[in-house]
């Protein structure tokens, strides 16, 4: 009888540790397997991104991107070769079809998840990328397709990157960087590079987003001074090179300067809507459109809450109250602003 207790206790302990699937050991192994898979997928992602951007991936670039030692990167590449995902040519790693498909899926899942977070949740902008970095490894291709359908098959993610179609190819070349844009020439921001994270955070904090219109005012070796959506900004060149733009030949700089935001409108003033800012996304954007904030609509400031915010605007015969942050998303013409 005396021996029963220790025996039962050790049996229970053994079960807790070694129980198939639910035991600690099994779980630990699963977690290890997942961690290894994530590392493989991250490596493949690095290869396909380098390729799309016309760069050559090397052992060192891989080690840098994954923040691992060169020795670990080498064994990782060996593992990828064993699994027939990667082949070597002149000592450089190249993707094989299976590896390319896997890499493409990861990129697709990442960008879809970012789109989902941007369009259908209230998750703050700075968390989109880190959350997508985790989720990209957990979505199956079928889940990614279902997500795409739910989102209405978006073609670009919130950073302006093209979401690759299933079995498609990864498009590179997001355009020229703001660094190289000619002064006094209107451009459209097409892409904000989300890596490295520290740079991305600064750009987001400045409110820069794909879809904004800008022009460089002046460029010196130490800084880039530029106009963007009504404000003047200054960036160090190292930051500006992560902002990608394409020229807007149909606009003159004067056209851009004439724009201001609805929030800047004085009480009793009236003006015309030019458009919604790209920072306005998802349901919020649809709602504002449905309320009639479309280009050409005349808006009037009707009254301001005694607490100072929100402000009620008269738009298409209806009075709609908007908070200051929302009014900051609606571009209006400053030229046509007039008192009633």
């Amino acid at each position: 009888m005396n021996h029963a207790l220790p025996v039962v206790a050790s049996l229970i302990a053994m079960a807790v540790v070694f129980w198939p699937r639910y035991g600690l050991w099994a779980r630990w192994q699963l977690a290890q397997e997942l961690a290894r898979r994530i590392r493989r997928e991250d490596a493949l992602k690095h290869l396909i991104k380098s390729e799309a951007n016309g760069r050559v991936a090397t052992l060192n670039s891989l080690a840098g991107a994954l923040q691992i030692s060169a020795a670990n990167a080498a064994s990782l590449l060996e593992e990828l070769e064993e699994r027939e995902l990667v082949t070597f040519e002149d000592g450089r790693p190249l993707l094989r079809p299976a590896g390319r498909a896997m890499a493409l899926h990861v990129v697709r899942a990442h960008r879809l998840w970012e789109s989902y977070l941007a369009e259908q949740t209230g998750v703050p902008e700075l968390e989109w990328h880190p959350r997508a970095e985790e989720r990209e490894h957990l979505l199956t291709p079928e889940e990614a397709d279902a997500l795409a359908a739910r989102l209405g098959h978006p073609t670009r993610d919130p950073h302006g990157d093209v979401i690759p179609p299933p079995h498609g190819d990864l498009e590179g070349d997001p355009g020229q960087s703001l660094n190289t844009a000619a002064p006094q020439t209107p451009v459209l921001i097409t892409h904000i590079e989300d890596e490295p994270d520290t740079v991305y955070r600064q750009l987001v904090a400045l409110g820069l987003r794909p879809g904004m219109r800008a022009f460089v005012i002046e460029k010196t070796p130490s800084r880039v001074r530029f106009w963007v959506d009504g404000n003047e900004q200054i960036l160090a060149p190292i930051l500006a090179q992560n902002v990608f733009v394409r020229p807007l030949p149909e606009f003159r700089t004067e056209d851009l300067v004439e724009e201001e935001f609805l929030s800047g409108l004085k009480p009793q003033a009236r003006t015309r809507v030019i458009g919604l800012s790209p920072a306005c996304r998802g349901q919020e954007r649809r709602r504002l459109l449905d309320l009639g904030f479309v280009p050409g609509t005349v808006v009037e400031v009707e009254m301001i809450s005694p607490a100072g915010d929100p402000t009620a605007y008269r738009v298409r015969g209806t009075i709609v109250a908007l908070r200051r942050e929302q009014a900051n998303l609606i571009r209006v013409s400053s030229k046509e602003a007039s008192d009633r």
Partner: peptide
């Protein structure tokens, strides 16, 4: 509804 085009 204001519209029939949205996802709501």
């Amino acid at each position: 509804t204001y519209s029939l085009l949205s996802t709501s």
